[in-house]
């Protein structure tokens, strides 16, 4: 088991290394010269040369890569072209809204999607099942920003139940914090729920055909106990896997949703960085989000051994 955990952790290194190479090359492929861009319109050639030396752009590409990785490992993501401050500090400023949004979305998804999938599987072929599947197809199809504006229009503007846009930090009190966060998290969770509910349904249906389910029913257990303790437990691995893969949807969705709801988080920062061609920030954000994605999927793999004691590595 310990060997497996270590092996799985080590396995993320080549993937992350490749991500770093790709992200580094993306910056190198920039058509413009970063030094010229950073120096501004009125810079002299000597100033540009000075900046180039300061950024290390006069050295060979391999040396640049190695030094860049060295800085990354020390938590130094470079300096933002646009904000003129360390990217690491920018990230620290913006992480709370995104983290809150992601956690709340994850909670909504698990609390809503898993029961939806189990109930649909239990009532296979009935109207409940059809409703869940229809929701699932619809949830996949409605673009997250269209849904966002729709919900703002109905619940914030027409019904006035929620503030229209913006974010209130947790320090401002739990009520304003939640009321600002509820609508964006619901919006973001719709596509995620669609994905997870569909997989939950399919994997519970598969488990319900097993002999031990028949045994459980025949020894007189209630439907509820069979579903939650026998079926769901054995269907857990595909469900947890898809929740992990869905984090990519969550990250992409956060980038869009933070723009729709005007939330000053990491997604918004990424979009602003792209619009202002702030390459160090773009680089850092792509790296950070990919790192989180890889780490979460590593945790998902590790959870298999906990979810299914038969799995021995």
């Amino acid at each position: 088991m310990a060997a497996f955990v270590i092996r799985r952790i080590l396995a993320t290194i080549p993937v992350l290394g490749m991500v770093a190479v790709i992200v580094f090359l993306i910056l190198r492929l920039t058509p413009g010269d970063p030094a010229t861009l950073l120096a501004g319109d009125n810079a002299t050639l000597a100033q540009i040369e000075e900046i180039r030396r300061h950024l290390g752009l006069d050295r060979s590409i391999v040396v640049q890569f190695v030094s860049w990785i060295g800085h990354l490992l020390r938590g130094d993501f470079g300096e933002s072209f646009f904000f003129k401050m360390p990217v690491a500090a920018l990230i620290a400023d913006r992480i709370q809204p995104t983290l809150s949004l992601a956690l709340m979305t994850l909670i909504f998804t698990i609390v809503i999607a898993v029961p939806m999938g189990v109930i649909a599987a239990n009532r296979r072929g009935t109207w409940v099942d059809h409703a869940v599947m229809t929701f699932s197809v619809g949830g996949f199809s409605i673009p997250v920003f269209v849904l966002g504006y729709l919900l703002i229009y109905v619940f914030a503007i027409r019904l006035n139940w929620f503030p229209v846009q913006g974010f209130k930090s947790f320090d401002a009190g739990i009520r304003p914090f939640l009321s600002h966060l509820l609508l964006p998290s619901l919006t973001l969770s719709v596509v995620y729920i669609a994905l997870v509910a569909r997989i939950a349904r399919a994997s519970v249906i598969e488990v319900l055909n097993e002999d031990y389910i028949r045994t459980a029913y025949s020894k007189g257990l209630t439907n509820r106990v069979v579903l939650t303790q026998h079926a769901l437990r054995n269907a857990a691995i595909p469900i947890v896997t898809v929740i992990g893969m869905g984090v990519a949807l969550l990250i992409g969705g956060a980038v869009v949703i933070e723009s729709v709801y005007n939330i000053p988080g990491l997604g918004r920062l990424t979009v602003d960085a792209v619009l202002s061609r702030d390459y160090p920030t773009i680089q850092a954000m792509v790296l950070l989000f990919s790192f989180i994605y890889v780490m979460i999927n590593m945790l998902v793999d590790l959870s298999y051994a906990v979810l299914d004691p038969r799995i021995r590595y």
Binding site: L16, I26, G252, A273, V274
Partner: peptide, 17 residues
């Protein structure tokens, strides 16, 4: 490596170039 980067992020990073 490519698949570890969420597709929206990879796409907007590429467009920014």
């Amino acid at each position: 490596g490519l698949m570890a980067i969420p597709s929206i992020l990879l796409a907007i990073a590429l467009v920014s170039l």
